[in-house]
């Protein structure tokens, strides 16, 4: 349980971090809270040449209000996110999903941006970011750019971040009135990864759902949006029957894995059941 040797860099600013990243080549890894990377290193499943530790970059920590969005610094810990007032007010879905991440020790060390940049499809925050249409702020040698959530997750553990780019923040658009949310997680034991989870955002008016956004955790090589469900829910009654019928589409377009926790047919079934439950819970029906 001892990692292979690597070079270690601890920059004092984002600029230094980006410059270190650009100089270190393709085999460099950014060390955030270390809750995913360190176990991988200890098991010698990865051999990065250089670790760039952004743990001391205070500018990446914290949540602030930016008008039509709240901005969550990439190095804000899960624990801080869960208890942040702006998150609670404008994106309670994030707070609720974050509460289900691993255990208290991990939530005190692990970071919001680190989990998203790691892009494990079994992680809880990807589906939430997709459902919320978040924007990912990446900083590279040529400056800053924003990447839409829909364009961010490319494949298993693979994102749209260039090798010399650092995820510095995530912009979460403020939702208007009438939006409700729920995160429904299904796992084996309390600290385990999701077998399947569903992030549901619904806009409700007069007993109907006018609009819905559904994110799926661990139903493919990336977090996914359940587009067919969203279409079926638009204008639907917020009743068990109508929502159930819409949720029947939850596994469409997915490519659920088969592993020790469940085979793909079971995951598809769970996606349908959990989508119905998540939407009904969000809609308060």
């Amino acid at each position: 349980m001892i990692p292979a040797a690597f070079d270690y860099v601890r920059p004092d600013s984002v600029a230094q971090a980006v410059s270190a990243l650009a100089g270190a080549g393709e085999d460099a890894k950014v060390l955030g809270g270390g809750q995913s990377l360190i176990p991988v290193l200890r098991l010698r499943l990865a051999y990065p040449s250089t670790l760039i530790d952004v743990g001391r970059l205070a500018e990446l920590r914290g949540v602030h209000d930016d008008g039509d969005a709240i901005v969550i610094g990439a190095m804000t810990t899960h624990h801080e996110v869960m208890h942040d007032a702006l998150v609670g007010e404008h994106a309670p879905l994030i707070a609720q999903a974050t509460e289900t991440v691993a255990d208290p020790q991990v939530r005190h060390r692990g970071t919001f941006g680190g989990a998203l940049a790691h892009a494990d499809p079994a992680g809880d925050l990807g589906a939430v970011a997709l459902a919320l249409d978040c924007e990912f702020v990446a900083t590279g040698p040529s400056g800053e750019r924003r990447i839409a959530a829909a364009d961010f997750f490319l494949d298993y553990l693979t994102t749209a971040l260039a090798p010399d780019e650092l995820l510095t923040a995530v912009r979460v658009p403020k939702l208007g009135p009438g939006w409700l949310s729920h995160y429904e997680k299904f796992n084996r034991v309390a600290q385990a990864w999701s077998i399947v989870a569903v992030a549901a955002l619904v806009h409700r008016e007069n007993g109907s759902i006018t609009q819905a956004r559904i994110g799926l955790t661990n139903m493919g090589s990336t977090p996914l949006r359940a587009v067919a469900v969203e279409h079926a829910l638009a204008g639907a009654d917020a009743s068990g029957e109508a929502v159930g019928a819409a949720a029947e589409h939850a596994a469409e377009g997915t490519a659920a894995p088969s592993d020790l926790s469940g085979k793909s047919d079971y995951r598809e079934h769970l996606a349908r059941v959990l989508t119905k439950r998540a939407v009904l819970a969000a809609a308060g029906s």
């Binding site: 255990d103 084996r188 034991v189 309390a190 600290q191 385990a192 990864w193 020790l260």
Partner: peptide, 9 residues
């Protein structure tokens, strides 16, 4: 991760 020992939770 795979050998799931339960905890108090």
């Amino acid at each position: 991760v795979d050998y799931t020992v339960p905890s108090a939770s």
